[in-house]
């Protein structure tokens, strides 16, 4: 269900992206020509500083990094990449015209996964590249698994906490629309009590499938805890978010559950969103959605309650002048 499409390390949707950082244009040309059968995408930087900037922006699957460059050399680039959390796990293969032991040891101590000397044996380099790409994919898979809820396949709470802070910050910085919804299954405890926990688990899994089906690819659904979910809808004002949530509510209410076809399961939803920048922080935004969820429960359940934070004078960002 975790369907976030913006996975780092991919160049053009599917191909792993390789960033070449080398001051020699020849090396860029040769590597691209000799690795072109490996189904990789390439990006290139001809200085250490440009390489750091591109690595942070593009998050490549693998970095081929020249050791000897004027200005910021390969050691310095490697150190800065490893000190920066978003780039620290990217496998770096050092390229060098020198095979001296001290340089190799220093490179490995700084976090390089491999060290290749020029001139390249391209057959060997291809094999080393494949190994590094595979390592990247395994690291990505492990990292993703650590962020996925085992029962429902949704993103978990830890993922939500991190991404929600990023999304609110991004929306406020750029003035983008953003909405989030808190969703809670109505009377869920009675399903467990009446039909057993396997039936309760099946309802949670079914709700997660409905969320995945009804939300857009840019949205992400997370299991917030227990029978509670949260849906984040980037670039979506509150009115449109309410529409998405109404579809989810209706789908839940009309689903027939094989383990208890006689029992309808409904969901209550609280939405908080804005079409533009607001002054609330991530936690306050979540609280606003949670208050609406409470209103939905108190108002009879199986309903969607929405607040447009942008229309709330206390939340609206006031721009001087």
């Amino acid at each position: 269900m975790a369907n976030d499409s913006a996975q780092p390390g991919t160049g053009d949707e599917t191909k792993p992206l390789v960033l070449i950082v080398d001051d020699s244009p020849d090396v860029h040309r040769l590597l691209r020509a000799r690795l072109n059968q490996e189904d990789l995408a390439f990006a290139g930087a001809e200085s250490g500083e440009a390489g750091i900037e591109m690595a942070m922006r593009l998050r490549p699957a693998v970095i081929l990094l020249d050791l000897n460059m004027p200005g910021t050399d390969g050691f310095e680039v490697l150190k800065r990449l490893k000190d920066h959390a978003p780039t620290s796990a990217i496998p770096v293969l050092m390229l060098s015209g020198h095979g001296d032991q001290a340089a190799k040891i220093r490179a490995f101590d700084l976090g390089a996964v491999d060290y290749v000397t020029k001139p390249f044996d391209f057959t060997e380099l291809r094999a080393r590249m494949r190994s590094a790409v595979k390592m990247h994919q395994l690291v990505q898979m492990l990292a993703q698994r650590a962020q996925i809820d085992g029962l429902t396949g949704c993103w978990n709470r830890a993922f939500f906490d991190q991404r929600w802070a990023e999304e609110t910050s991004r929306a406020q910085r750029h003035g983008h629309a953003l909405s989030m919804a808190m969703l809670d299954l109505d009377y869920f405890k009675t399903i467990n009590d009446t039909y057993g926990h396997p039936a309760g688990d099946a309802v949670l899994q079914g709700a997660a499938k409905i969320l995945a089906r009804e939300c857009r690819t840019s949205d992400f659904a997370c299991r917030y805890g227990g029978e509670e979910f949260v849906l984040v809808m980037p670039d979506t004002p509150s009115e449109a978010a309410a529409g998405v949530c109404e579809r989810i509510r209706a789908a839940m209410a009309t689903t027939v559950w094989p383990r208890h076809p006689e029992r309808v399961v409904t969901i209550s939803i609280g939405v908080a969103g804005s079409a533009g920048p607001v002054v609330v922080n991530a936690a306050e935004w979540t609280e606003a959605a949670d208050r609406n969820l409470y209103r939905a429960k108190r108002g009879g359940r199986n309903r969607v309650e929405t607040t447009d934070l942008g229309a709330d004078a206390a939340c609206r960002l006031r721009v001087a002048g």
Binding site: S24, V27, K118, P119, F120
Partner: peptide, 11 residues
């Protein structure tokens, strides 16, 4: 010379 050292064999 460093650049040609690294690339000449590749060509």
């Amino acid at each position: 010379s460093h650049q040609l050292r690294g690339s000449s064999a590749g060509y």
